[in-house]
Design a protein around this nucleic acid. Structure first.
Length: 874
RNA sequence: GCGCGUUUAGCUCAGUUGGUAGAGCACUCGCUUGACGUGCGAGUGGUCAGCGGUUCAAGUCCGUUAACGCGCACCA
């Protein structure tokens, strides 16, 4: 006896249990079978500090859909999971927690801090992994990795040493982006620019010789402490005679020259720029060109240094106020304008970045970027949608060297040792005992760590075992699809591409599937500060993981943002419930020894019809998935399940199920089982839990739907004639329902139907359908009827009379028919215009012309039928 | 400044290589229909942002304008 299902689907009691059976069954584990074609995805590793948010939910839903689809198609499928150590984010969190306990990093020291950090990782690092499981993610957890595990560390050191030896990693004194809050460098990619209201202070710098002054303007007066020159454009005649003269820096008294440099725009401000090489990237370059000194006036937490006693220890913004006040009092301030300018901020803490000159490690990007650009240009790697390749090119073609050293403790420590005796740098994979040049034992490792993204950049191969030549690496690399949001193309995707080409000689993946942001119902970005974030785990608890996944997949087109609302999840939940109840219907009709899914003999018209449509759905869904149009795929399934299967086929199936013909019952049960169980397969990647639950309850072969075979399109199931026949019947049924609804006739009030048609065979087969679906008490079919006082329904295939004398308003009938005739003739005229257009006949594809001709036939039939009917009414 | 995206029903969005505009939600009317009221049936609602072009044919391709949004680069 088949299991009685609850009236409503309850995800809460199904999901955890089902996930456990998948884990216990080892179904997620990639077999590493050398004879099979592989399909590999590496997860964008979430930060260990993170909690699952909607962005993760979307990203991982898309990956799981692809992975489950490919797994069912028979690929040796690996979805490799893991987490990112997220150096800044994690260190900031740990330091915050320490602050609450009144401890500083210095109190603990490096070793002590790292012990704490690893403890923290142990405690919280697994949290997001557990949350991914709630979503149904079919990752191979046996291969789970961490960007700072031993293997990743080995890969990081290997790459660092290789690039250093090739001269592609170097150490240099350059101007970098400094975050005074995080007290570390950050890369160009990590700077976020935002418009800020500020001021434009016009200052006068007097000439040393007393010959007046030069006027300039600045948005950052506090940096004047580090001014070493004033620059004008060499073509600027206004200042031609001033170039080379000396100025006296106000408040400080330092003597600085006027230099000429192309960098200065003549028509901006006064055409004069003060030059502060230590605190501005452009000034740094000007300074280098003119051999100017670099005077740093700030500490690493952006306070004025001891060199300027009056301002020493003041924060840069306090110093700004004080200096402006002093300039004003000294008569150096000409005027102050309001001014909005773009200020660089730290992407983590949004503190204003302080450009700063310091000794850091860099990756030389130009040589690495070139082949990485080429890989996308020649199609080795494809972005979906394609437009993101433009962003990628733009970024890569204008790339500057990548600052990779961070003044943090949580991360991969830079494998470089400095010799206190000879100053040589020893870069080594192992831990060296002596200086590589002089042999001195007096060496010390660089205290800095590497940018988090340095290790993430190696993720597609470090996770497979590189630099060791492992079986996994040989088998699963290169990976196939990378799924991620457009916001980290520059941070991560581009760096994986060049790292992989450089170290593996191959692109890391062939396709980058880009998705957008999940926004709130009003279209705002979900953020902590707005408090408008929706917790995916709460959605899962309320509506189920399948409903969440379905919502995220539905209407999601690559690269576009989407809005999330509870209404949408409710619609998805309702869909799950609809499916559940369709399954209940199938199950309650099954025989005790129901055979496994198969296509029975003696198919009825409606059986062939649904098999034909199902077959097309298989094709459409498969093609959509292959094109990464997951939103379209899921829409096709929704329509098939709700409209075709539930609204029509199940209703039609009831006719035979409620009758006494045992053979017919057997057939319809088999079709139901076949269509239901195969539809579940198509839906499984999107809604894994409910499909498994139902599939296992139905007759099935195999232990899990996860490992069942994906459906294939079959020409044998293409029943075009039956589809056409069903279309005629369905149009007639809809017409009758429509008429009855217009007349407010209750479904319980049955009426006899007289179907006048030249196609008696078709309607004879469908006669029972009208009883079931169009409230017919009986159906008569003949070429023509002369019914007195009936309502009529006209289609292109028939005219149906509903004898409802008491309800008929002949005047209204005439009006309605005339209206319908007008509409039909209008359509007819449109088609005729086309068909009489020589250009159309000559140039349109034959199939299109044929289609139009067929449509014309149908419309003409319908018009004729309406005219005949009007004739009768007169 | 350069580049990109969006603009389709009241709302949120789909719309495959051009071939008679779709869904969900909302709304209106009707329904204890032996799977499901998280449901069933029927319906209202659209000069596909504007203009121009290519084409036999444009929501779809090209150009242009506008509004909104995003990215990159910035003039101190």
């Amino acid at each position: 006896m088949y299991k009685e299902l609850a009236k409503q689907y309850e995800p809460q009691i199904v999901e955890d249990r089902t996930y456990k059976t998948w884990i216990d069954g080892g179904y997620f584990k990639a077999p590493c079978d050398p004879d099979k074609k592989t399909y590999t995805i590496v997860i964008p590793p979430p930060n260990i500090t993170g909690q699952l948010h909607m962005g993760h939910a979307l990203d991982n839903t898309l990956q799981d859909i692809l992975i489950r689809y490919k797994r069912m198609q028979g690929f040796d499928t690996l979805w490799l999971p893991g987490t990112d150590h997220a150096s800044i984010a994690t260190e900031v969190k740990i330091v915050e927690k320490m602050r609450e306990e009144g401890i500083t990093k210095d109190d603990l020291g490096r070793e002590g801090f790292l012990v704490r950090a690893w403890d923290w990782k142990k405690q919280y690092g697994g949290r997001i992994v557990e949350q991914l499981k709630k979503l149904g993610s079919s990752c191979d957890w046996s291969r789970e990795r961490f960007t700072m595990d031993e293997g990743c560390n080995k890969a990081v050191k290997e790459v660092f040493v290789r690039l250093y030896e090739k001269g592609l990693i170097y150490r240099g004194n350059r101007i970098i982006n400094w975050c005074p809050e995080c007290r570390t460098t950050i890369s160009d990619a990590e700077v976020e620019y935002e418009d800020q209201a500020g001021h434009f202070w016009h200052l006068r710098y007097p000439f040393k010789d007393g010959s007046g002054y030069i006027e300039l303007a600045t948005t950052r007066p506090e940096t004047m402490l580090g001014d070493v020159a004033v620059a004008v454009n060499p073509k600027d005649e206004r200042y031609a005679d001033k170039v080379g003269k000396m100025l006296v820096l106000p408040l400080i008294g330092r003597e600085i020259p006027v230099v000429a440099d192309e960098y200065v725009e003549m028509d901006f401000g006064t055409g004069v720029v003060k030059i502060t090489p230590a605190h501005d990237p452009n000034d740094f370059e000007v300074g280098a060109r003119h051999d100017l000194p670099i005077i740093n006036c700030m500490t690493d937490d952006a306070k004025i240094t001891e060199d300027y006693p009056k301002y020493a220890g003041m924060d840069r913004f306090a110093a700004r106020k004080a200096i402006v006040k002093d300039l004003e009092e000294g008569g150096y301030l000409i005027k102050t304008e309001d001014y909005t300018h773009n200020v660089g901020t730290c992407y983590r803490c949004h503190t204003t970045i302080e450009p700063r000159v310091s000794l850091q490690w860099f990756v030389s990007m130009k040589p690495l970027a070139e082949p990485a650009i080429e890989a996308v240009r020649d199609g080795t790697i494809r972005f979906i949608p394609d437009r993101f390749s433009k962003n990628y090119f733009h970024w890569m073609e204008n790339i500057r060297d990548w600052c990779i050293s961070r003044q943090l403790w949580w991360g991969h420590r830079i494998p470089a040792w400095y010799c206190a005796d000879c100053g040589e740098i020893t870069v080594s994979k192992g831990t060296p005992d002596v200086c590589c040049k002089c042999g001195s034992k007096n060496i010390e490792q660089d205290p800095d760590t590497l940018d988090t993204w340095f290790s993430s950049a190696l993720w597609p191969f470090s996770t497979l075992g590189w630099p060791d030549n492992t079986e996994d690496l040989r088998h699963y690399f290169p990976t196939n699809t990378l799924v991620t949001g457009y916001d980290i193309i520059t941070f991560w995707v581009s760096r994986m591409i060049f790292s992989s080409i450089e170290n593996m000689g191959k692109a890391p993946f062939d396709t980058v599937l880009i998705h957008g942001l999940v926004r709130d119902a009003q279209g705002r970005k979900m953020s902590k500060s707005l408090g408008n974030g929706i917790d995916p785990l709460e959605i899962i608890a309320t509506y189920g993981a399948d409903a969440l996944r379905f919502t995220l997949a539905t209407g999601n087109s690559p690269g576009n943002d989407m809005r999330f609302s509870n209404e949408k999840v409710e619609a998805s939940r309702n869909f799950a419930n609809k499916l559940w109840n369709a399954a209940r219907f199938v199950l309650m009709n099954l025989d005790e020894n129901e055979p496994a899914p198969h296509i029975p003999a003696n198919l009825a018209l409606e059986d062939k019809w649904i098999l034909s449509i199902f077959n097309k759905t298989v094709r459409d869904v498969t093609e959509a998935l292959d094109r990464f149009e997951l939103g379209i795929a899921v829409q096709k399934l929704y329509d098939f399940i709700w409209d075709i299967l539930c609204d029509w086929y199940i209703e039609l199936a009831k006719i035979r199920l409620n009758a006494d013909d045992e053979e017919a019952k057997k057939t319809v049960r088999a079709v139901l089982v076949y269509v239901m169980s195969n539809t579940l397969k198509l839906l499984h990647p999107f809604m894994p839990f409910i499909t498994e639950e139902i599939w296992l309850t139905l007759p099935h072969e195999g232990e899990t739907i996860m490992l069942s075979d994906w459906c294939k399109y079959s020409e044998d199931l293409n029943f075009a004639a039956e589809e056409e026949q069903m279309n005629k019947i369905m149009a007639a049924i809809k017409g009758v329902r429509n008429r009855r609804a217009e007349m407010n006739v209750a479904p319980s009030k049955k009426a006899e139907l007289f179907i006048a048609t030249a196609d008696a065979d078709t309607f004879a087969v469908g006669a029972a359908f009208f009883k079931r679906l169009a409230s017919a008490s009986d159906v008569q079919i003949a070429p023509d009827f002369a019914i007195d006082g009936a309502v009529s329904v006209v289609t292109d295939a028939c005219t149906i009379y509903i004898p409802m004398r008491e309800l008929v308003d002949f005047e209204a009938e005439r009006k309605r028919l005339n209206k319908e005739l007008d509409a039909t003739e209008k359509q007819l005229a449109q088609i005729d215009a086309k068909l009489s257009n020589a250009g159309f006949l000559a140039k349109a594809p034959e199939a299109v012309v044929e289609q139009q001709k067929q449509n014309r036939e149908k419309l003409a039939e319908k018009a004729a039928n309406i005219r005949a009917e009007l004739e009768k009414l007169n």
